[in-house]
């Protein structure tokens, strides 16, 4: 039996100096990822997916491919959430700024 190849990933940013580690975990792992499927738009428009990845072989490299897909999913979900958070906090700040700069609040624009 060959030794398992286990990928890891690390995320760090100025606002999160402690960072965040990703490991594939126990599994099961497969090459079909949650976040790397074809777009819904294509399927809804009657398209077919002929580009699915081949299944992972039961070899060290094959298993690495499956684990990579899992870790990629975790990273994608993490980064998507980060983007959502940033977007909502930016929207909040923009609203705050607008209110301070222009004195706009609910109702006041009726006078214009």
């Amino acid at each position: 039996m060959t030794q398992d190849l286990v990928p890891t990933a690390h995320y760090e940013s100025p606002s999160e100096p402690k960072g965040y580690d990703f490991i594939p975990g126990d599994g099961p792992h497969s090459t079909i990822g949650e976040t790397t499927k074809i777009s819904d738009i294509v399927i809804n428009a009657g398209g077919q997916d002929r580009d699915t990845p081949s299944e992972a072989k039961d070899t060290a490299l094959g298993q690495l491919r499956a684990r990579l897909t899992t870790i990629q999913d975790k990273i994608n979900i993490f980064l998507t959430n980060k983007m959502k958070e940033e977007k909502s906090s930016k929207e909040l700040k923009d609203l705050e700024k607008k209110m301070l700069d222009e004195g706009v609040d609910e109702g006041s624009s009726d006078n214009e």
Partner: peptide
């Protein structure tokens, strides 16, 4: 070639996925 269904253009992410998997 990555071919999208009629009425749809090819999206970057699906095109990239096609290239990656082939």
């Amino acid at each position: 070639t990555y071919v999208s269904p009629p009425g749809e253009g090819f999206l970057p992410r699906d095109t990239a996925r096609h290239h990656r998997n082939w």
